[in-house]
Nucleic acid binder design. Sequence first.
DNA 1: TCCTCTTGCTACAATAAACGTAGCAATACG
DNA 2: CGTATTGCTACGTTTATTGTAGCAAGAGGA
Lengths: 112, 112
Amino acid sequence: MPKQGSAMKKRTVRGSTSGRPIMALLDLLGRRWSLRIVWELRDDRALTSRALRSACDEASPTVLQARLSELREAGLVELVAGDGYRLTGLGKELFEYFLPLHRFAERWSKSL
Amino acid sequence: MPKQGSAMKKRTVRGSTSGRPIMALLDLLGRRWSLRIVWELRDDRALTSRALRSACDEASPTVLQARLSELREAGLVELVAGDGYRLTGLGKELFEYFLPLHRFAERWSKSL
DNA sequence: TCCTCTTGCTACAATAAACGTAGCAATACG
DNA sequence: CGTATTGCTACGTTTATTGTAGCAAGAGGA
């Protein structure tokens, strides 16, 4: 049994056992910084862990690493040696659904 | 100054002051149960607070009320007397972007 | 080699968020 | 009056996130 650091616990995605993938996905994306990370890696951007941290308002590296581990395990993000973190094919596909969300956000903020 | 119960603190959406609506939206939706709530209220469904709680795996009413307050303040959810919680026009519009996400989740789970 | 820099990643104590149980006030029945 | 349901909150415990610091490994350069 491998030793577990504080950042590599709780790998299970809530709802992943229910046979309802959407629940697992909503849970994964509903964790702090998940959506933001995918957003920051848009347009084939490759960011190092520290560049990503800067992009995410200097969020704590502890959570970021946790989210990155989860996203990598989920096959949405990958770490390319000498390059940085980037979206996988599946991750890019997921991001496609964020574009209209961006436009929606503009309209939404005006309606407040 | 009105009294504040434990469930009505922290109304500020992170990033809402940055002038980047997408950040505020990602933050709001990135809180636990936010995405799920919108999901459960899909298809013009109206759910009472307790029905919604059942739909959300009996999540704690404390968070659910907090999320509902935030989503209502954001104009995405409304409470119709004698009917229950439901998506507003804006909320329904937001949900439209979740439909492809549903199909994506199916493919995603198979790729794991 | 040694020094310096950057990388990905982790420890750890403190704070904030979420959980679970219980229950209140208001409303609507009978 | 009882009873049941509604939206919502109190509160003590557990879990997640934060912030600061730093480690080990790798890539140069001197």
